[in-house]
C-alpha cells in the first residue's frame, strides 16, 4: 500500500478492504492500526473528514488496545477535528 498516493484507486481500496478483513480475522491488532490509519490518511486527502475520522477512530481504538504509543498521535488528530477528548498522558 502506497501512502503517498493522493487518492487510492478502486483496486487499491478493494485491496485495503481485503487486508483489513484479513487482519481482523488474524486478530493482528498492530496491522489493523496500520491499515485503518492508511484508510484515514486517504480519506483525509480526499477531504472527507467524516470518513477520515471513522478510520482514525478505528485505528485509535486498536492502538489503545495494543498499548502502542501511536494511540497518542491518532488521538491528537481526532482531537484536532473536535472528535475526541485528549488522552491523559
Amino acid at each position: 500500500m502506497n501512502a503517498e498516493w493522493t487518492q487510492i484507486s478502486p483496486q487499491e481500496a478493494a485491496a485495503l478492504h481485503a487486508a483489513i478483513l484479513a487482519a481482523h480475522a488474524n486478530h493482528d491488532l498492530e496491522r489493523l492500526v496500520e491499515l485503518y490509519a492508511i484508510a484515514a490518511d486517504s480519506k483525509e486527502r480526499e477531504g472527507d473528514v467524516d470518513a477520515a475520522c471513522f478510520f482514525l477512530t478505528q485505528a485509535f481504538v486498536f492502538a489503545l488496545e495494543t498499548g502502542i504509543s501511536r494511540a497518542h498521535e491518532l488521538n491528537r488528530r481526532l482531537v484536532a477535528y473536535g472528535r475526541a477528548w485528549p488522552l491523559e498522558p
Binding site: A51, C53, F54, T57, Q58, F60, L78, R83
Partner: peptide
C-alpha cells in the same frame, strides 16, 4: 474511549 459514541467518527 467510547468510539463513535456521538455518531460515526465522533468520539
Amino acid at each position: 474511549a467510547a468510539p463513535h459514541v456521538g455518531g460515526v467518527g465522533q468520539n
